[in-house]
Design a protein around this nucleic acid. Structure first.
Length: 269
DNA sequence: TCGCAGTCATTTGAAGAAAA
DNA sequence: TTTTCTTCAAATGACTGCGA
């Protein structure tokens, strides 16, 4: 929770360019128990105006109507404007919070405080620098390098042939690695050469910040015993190591295999 | 001639908006 | 609140031109 308070502080400071200090709000003891259980309260001064921050600690989102009522109750007790804070708000609830003129802050994302004329939406997200994340073809190239024993020099054309990608995709993968300063990139005539001086764990740790999970979705299904697929996660570890089998078996499917396989059969999600 | 790179088209999925 | 529709971005391949 303290982390969220810091995020709000940082976000407001970044956007408005002024120092902001958040302090615990002393008067929260007089609020009903259910409000004190759901929210954490802080006081904040922005542009000369004091506010109470009502930080939502619950996992599930509640309706904007309920949020509005809670904010009104806190406002009537504290005699100060209330700003609702939550780490994420769905688009439809955001719209309704604005309709109800409920001030809110989603740290790093949105700030709506109509009394101060502040209405900063998600477009600020786009202005931030984008983190370099490797494309799937680059992931494939790296896994190929990590799994094979010999350490020879690679070219885009040869790697494309081996991995089943087009030469253009492999050229892009080489570009991404070069941008991330991973591997030794040289050119022999017009041919690009890529060599990895680092091996195994060292290489893995170097590339880790640029990798993303290949998992699109996690599903729990009935009749898992009827599934025929590639074991994944702890189930795969149990197959190849001394680890014991997990209670629920884990399988991995590509989107296509899932559609023509278990999803089309009698397995229920 | 061949390998690479630039550009454009296509496909796919995610996110947001609108409708029910 | 849920479902459906729309838009946008990412990933990839095909085509083409450049230059060693």
């Amino acid at each position: 929770m303290q982390k969220m308070i810091h995020q709000v502080e940082k976000y407001v400071r970044e956007i408005l360019g002024i120092p902001v200090t958040l302090l615990p709000w002393e008067n929260s003891a007089g609020l009903p128990q259910y409000l004190r259980e759901r929210y954490r309260f802080s006081s904040m001064m922005v542009l000369g105006t004091d506010f109470i921050l009502m930080v939502d600690t619950a996992g599930e989102e509640q309706s904007p109507a309920v949020t509005g009522k809670h904010a009104e109750m806190v406002q009537s007790r504290g005699r100060l404007g209330v700003i609702y804070v939550r780490n994420a708000v769905t688009s439809y609830n955001r719209k309704r919070l604005i309709e109800r003129k409920v001030p809110f802050i989603v740290p790093g994302n949105q700030m709506y405080i109509p009394t101060l004329g502040i209405d900063l939406r998600e477009h600020f997200k786009a202005l931030r620098e984008r983190k370099l994340v490797f494309s799937p073809s680059t992931h494939a190239l790296l896994l190929y390098v990590l799994l094979r024993k010999e350490a020879d020099t690679l070219t885009p054309a040869e790697t494309a042939h081996r991995l089943g990608y087009s030469p253009m995709s492999m050229t892009r993968a080489f570009d991404e690695l070069e941008r991330a300063d991973i591997g030794e990139h040289t050119a022999v005539g017009k041919e690009r050469h890529l060599h990895f001086p680092e091996k195994g764990r060292h290489l893995w740790e170097m590339v880790l910040p640029y990798l993303t999970t290949p998992v699109r979705k996690r599903l729990y299904v009935s009749e898992a015993g009827k599934i025929n697929g590639n074991l994944a996660g702890q189930s795969a570890l149990a197959r190849y190591t001394m680890l014991s089998e997990p209670k629920n078996k884990v399988f991995a499917f590509s989107a296509e295999d899932w559609k023509v396989g278990p999803k089309s059969g009698e397995i229920k999600e």
